[in-house]
């Protein structure tokens, strides 16, 4: 489908554990995400969710299979091109915010733009400022990120993931480290952006409550995709 943001075809991933021994962690994953989808990725611990996200995010390469991102086949790209494609089409949110402590909240949000274009400019700053205000962080924009609360930090991280207006946001347990209230706030923000901008989200979560609020739920068990169903509760509603 032309509108697919992501297409995985028979993707496997093995890790070398000891020189001759390899373990296959992902066994032939097929998965397609369309533009504007809001997808939960669930599964027991150790089932391969993070491994899958790393492959989709072009941080790692599959052992076999093909990954197409925003229509571009990635299997044969070199490190440089992968990096560029990653920077421009994907936003990451991790369990721990991984903000860069030497910079202010605003500077952290503009960082992906700065990395991409090389020199800072006023439009980057304005974009970062807009996102932060949007995330109710305007008053903290000029502060060092270390002084923010956990929930605020994670919201800055989400804003950063959105700075380049990516086609796809990959979030690995984005609320895993937050209390219920902060996690609801963060989740709602992602949902809002998804509705407004048509940004595709793939969110790994252990929280059934949050998964229940996604449009589609993909389940991985032991490196296999065991279920992929639309979530009737949200579809059509709202």
């Amino acid at each position: 489908m032309a509108d697919d943001v992501l297409a995985l075809e028979a993707v496997t991933k093995s890790f070398a554990v000891g020189t001759p021994v390899e373990v296959e962690v992902l066994h032939g994953i097929d998965l397609t995400l369309a533009r504007g989808e809001f997808v939960a990725l669930i599964g027991p611990s150790g089932s391969g969710k993070s491994t899958l996200l790393n492959l989709i995010g072009l941080l790692d390469r599959p052992t076999a299979g093909r990954i197409a991102l925003a229509g571009a086949e990635t299997t044969r790209l070199d490190d440089r091109d992968l990096t560029r494609l990653r920077g421009r089409t994907i936003g990451f949110v991790f369990q721990y915010h991984h903000l860069i402590s030497a910079f202010t909240a605003e500077e952290n949000v503009m960082m992906p733009l700065l990395v991409d274009r090389g020199f800072p400019d006023a439009t980057m700053r304005a974009r970062a400022r807009d996102l932060l205000e949007r995330f109710h962080l305007g008053p903290w924009a000029e502060q060092g990120v270390a002084s923010l609360s956990g929930g605020q930090q994670q919201r800055v991280a989400i804003a950063r993931a959105l700075a380049m207006d990516p086609a796809l946001v990959l979030a690995d347990e984005p609320t895993g480290n937050l209390d219920t209230r902060s996690s609801d706030v963060a989740f709602d923000l992602m949902r809002e952006i998804n509705r407004e901008r048509g940004t595709t989200f793939l969110i790994v979560t252990h929280d059934p409550r949050l998964a229940a609020r996604c449009d589609r739920i993909v389940e991985v068990v032991d490196g296999r995709l065991v279920s992929d169903r639309p979530n009737v509760a949200t579809n059509g509603a709202l």
Partner: peptide
């Protein structure tokens, strides 16, 4: 190393 990792994830090239 974590900050370097996140910079790489957001598109920073090895050269940078």
């Amino acid at each position: 190393s974590k900050e370097i990792g996140i910079l790489r994830a957001m598109g920073a090239k090895r050269g940078q």
